[in-house]
Each structure stands twice: as C-alpha cells, then as structure tokens.
Amino acid sequence: MAELLVIRHAQASFGADNYDRLSELGHRQSELAGAALRESGWLPDRLVTGTLTRQHETLASMGFSQPPETHAGLNEYDFHNLLSVRFEGQVPDSVRHDRKTHFRTLRDTILQWQAGGLHGAAESWRQFTDRVGAARHFATQTDARRVLAISSGGPIGQLVASCLGAPDAEMMALNLQVKNTSWTRFFFSKQGFTLHEFNATPHFSSAERAKMLTYS
C-alpha cells in the first residue's frame, strides 16, 4: 500500500498580528523534521500543502525544494472568524493572548460550530469536513507511493476522526493534541484508507530536543 504522511506546520506566531508565519523556533522544528525523514530513508515522491504561508514555510524549511501541489482543503478552519462570530466581533484579550484561555475557548467554540451554531461564520462545519475530504481524495488519487502533505491541526484531527468513524466531537479532542511538525501516517490504496500512526515526533525524542516541542 502507498503512504500519506501528513505533517502539521511548525510553530506559528501566536498572539501576533499575523499568525500565519513561522516563528524562529518553527523554522528550526521544520529543519529537524525534514532531516529525520531523510535519515530514516523516507523520501516523498509527491508533495502537497494547503495554501497557508505557515504550511509553505514549513515545507521549505524541511528542505524539500520541489514546488508542491496545493489544495485548500488542507487549510485550517478560520478560528479568528469563528471566535469573532461567537463574540460578535469583540473577542476578549484573554482569548487572543493567553494560550490556556484561547484553546479552552476555541474548543467550546468548535463544539458549538459542529452542533450547527455560529450562524454567519465564513464556513460551516459541513463545508469544512467536505473540503478536508476533498483534500484526502486529491492526495491519494495518485500513482505516487509516498505522499507528503503539510496541513494544520484541524484538518489532521478531522482526517483521523473520519478514518476511524469517530463522532464529530472527537475531531476537536484530536485537534488539540496535534504537535507542531508531528507526523500522522495513513496507508491507502484503491480499496481503503487506514490510520497507521498519529502525532509522532521522533525528531524531538532526545531530552534536549524535547524542549522544542510546541502545540501552536
């Protein structure tokens, strides 16, 4: 069977005016992830990313220079928009700048979204799941045997939840676990799509590198 290795982008710029850029640490995380793939002998024969800057910067810093194909289905849901809709444009400072408050609030917001709330959001929950499914189809309808995709926590959580037939709410539980530059691996063929590995970070396995592990 062929492999689809989905890697979450490296650390972005949490709390900055432009979140969609890697931090200095994010570039270093990407370099380590790319080096670990090459050291293991796993070299992709197809590259796919979403359209977000942090995803493209991750791939570039991993050291894979060939131009990737892009599919917007690998992009994150627009959490800025969802929070803005929930708070009617007045998102509290603590939600925007305090990590614990942000992710606790985000979890509750996504559960509302999944249940059909947040009317007026730029994207519905069903539109999100449909585009993630389209991205999976795009990445796996190929003769390539090793497909490397750079995505984000939400789509990765949804790919895993849908593969396992889990309830919608499980997507968010998975989403919040996904580490920056972690590896989630699927096997695929014309007959099936199965999860093989979730959220692995072998490039942070040493005590020194473990300090580089981040979630946002």
Rank of each mutant, 00 (worst) to 15 (best):
R38A: 07
I7G: 01
T140G: 03
S61M: 11
L111D: 09
N180M: 06
A36F: 04
L164V: 05
P202W: 06
T70H: 10
G41T: 03
R99A: 15
E76S: 08
T184P: 07
M172Y: 12
M172N: 11
L47D: 02
T49D: 01
W42Y: 08
Q66S: 14
L5M: 12
G120W: 04
L5S: 04
W125I: 10
L176F: 02
A166Y: 12
M212W: 14
E69L: 15
T58E: 04
R107V: 07
A166N: 10
Q177L: 14
A33N: 01
D20W: 12
K100I: 09
S151Q: 03
D143P: 05
G165F: 03
S124A: 04
G73H: 06
T184A: 11
S152P: 12
H27R: 14
E123S: 04
K190F: 07
T140W: 03
C163G: 05
W113K: 09
N75G: 13
W113N: 05
Q55E: 08
Q29P: 07
R146P: 00
L25R: 14
K179W: 14
A16P: 03
I7A: 01
Q191R: 13
N175K: 06
L148H: 07
L159K: 00
V178H: 08
T53C: 14
G165I: 07
A115S: 13
K211M: 10
H102K: 06
H97D: 07
N18V: 10
P202V: 01
A166E: 11
Q114R: 09
V91R: 01
R86M: 07
D98A: 05
T49R: 09
S205W: 10
V160E: 01
N18E: 13
H97T: 13
D17T: 11
L25K: 14
M212R: 15
L32I: 12
L176A: 12
F193D: 05
S216R: 12
G34Q: 02
T142Q: 00
S13G: 07
R145F: 15
S40G: 10
G41L: 01
L106K: 15
T184F: 14
R96M: 09
